[in-house]
């Protein structure tokens, strides 16, 4: 289809506008984090610009604590959700079995479920089981919500994989376990890496689940929320920006992994042709 220059320019302009509006709040946060004043007002004189809050944020042991909690939750969540997600991806995309279709639908359900309600439900469940919520109960909550996502990501990779590879290995006398370790895991590895990045990032930014399930511990988004509603100081946007930068770095890593994976796939197909 011929796309005229004006049409293309129109669509590009529109996309630019959407992106601009989309990034406006983040710009605002950056602006606020650089202001010296306790009460934000815009525009502020250049003399009031400072990076003091970043230094404060990086040195504050309190902030370090929250980051520590968030990181611990993210790391464990990523581990569990990728391991479980790997097996459920096999069930989702690889093997034909009764109940597979139902399984494929059910996998999505937690995703479509409002997180605040899930968090509350878990809170009640833990209290029923006489478990005192702490950071590790948040791991359970995050894993429940994130595993469907890792499952889907790894499934996409599993769909792209040639069925006959496993059959060939089996034909040459490999046991199911050997096939799993030597064929399936290496082939699905890129999908698992991508899934790990996603799991870390989603857990890192999650607020609704953490709010109800961390108990006395507090993750970074929870702390930010508390300080936004009461007791604002420019430290809050500064920590926000740091958390965003952390996420962006991970996205860049993710992007590199995906690009590397595509290059490798292209090389592989080139080799087989």
């Amino acid at each position: 289809m011929i796309v005229t220059r004006t049409q293309k320019a129109g669509f590009s302009l529109y996309a630019g506008l959407v992106l601009l509006v989309f990034y406006f709040p983040l710009l605002c946060i950056i602006v606020a984090s650089l202001s010296k004043r306790r009460f934000f007002s815009f525009p502020y004189p250049m003399a009031d610009m400072t990076t003091k809050w970043y230094a404060d944020a990086l040195q504050s042991p309190q902030v370090a604590d929250f980051i520590g909690v968030s990181l611990r939750i993210a790391a464990l969540t990523a581990f569990f959700s990728v391991v479980i997600g790997f097996f459920s991806a096999l069930a989702y995309a690889r093997y034909r079995w009764r109940g597979r279709q139902t399984f494929q639908r059910l996998v999505l359900f937690p995703l479509f479920f409002p997180q605040s309600v899930l968090g509350l439900a878990l809170l009640m469940w833990f209290s029923f089981l006489h478990i005192t919520p702490a950071w590790w109960t948040a791991v359970i909550a995050h894993t429940v919500w994130i595993t469907p996502i890792t499952t889907l990501i790894i499934s996409i990779q599993a769909y792209g994989q040639d069925d006959s590879l496993e059959e060939a290995a089996r034909d040459m006398g490999a046991t199911r376990l050997q096939i799993l370790l030597r064929i399936t895991v290496p082939l699905l590895l890129p999908g698992m890496i991508t899934a790990t990045c996603f799991a870390v990032l989603l857990s890192w930014g999650n607020f609704a689940l953490s709010l109800f399930t961390t108990g006395a511990d507090s993750s970074l988004p929870e702390w930010l929320y508390a300080r936004m509603t009461t007791g604002y100081q420019p430290l809050v946007p500064a920590v926000g920006v740091i958390s965003v930068v952390g996420a962006v770095i991970l996205v860049v890593v993710l992007f590199t992994v995906v690009a590397w994976n595509q290059r490798r796939a292209r090389r592989l197909t080139a080799a087989t042709e």
């Binding site: 983040l26 946060i29 989603l202 930014g205 607020f207 930010l224 936004m228 991970l250 996205v251």
Partner: peptide
């Protein structure tokens, strides 16, 4: 998606 919606 990876930035906490509170911050945004």
């Amino acid at each position: 998606l990876f930035v906490s919606e509170n911050i945004r």
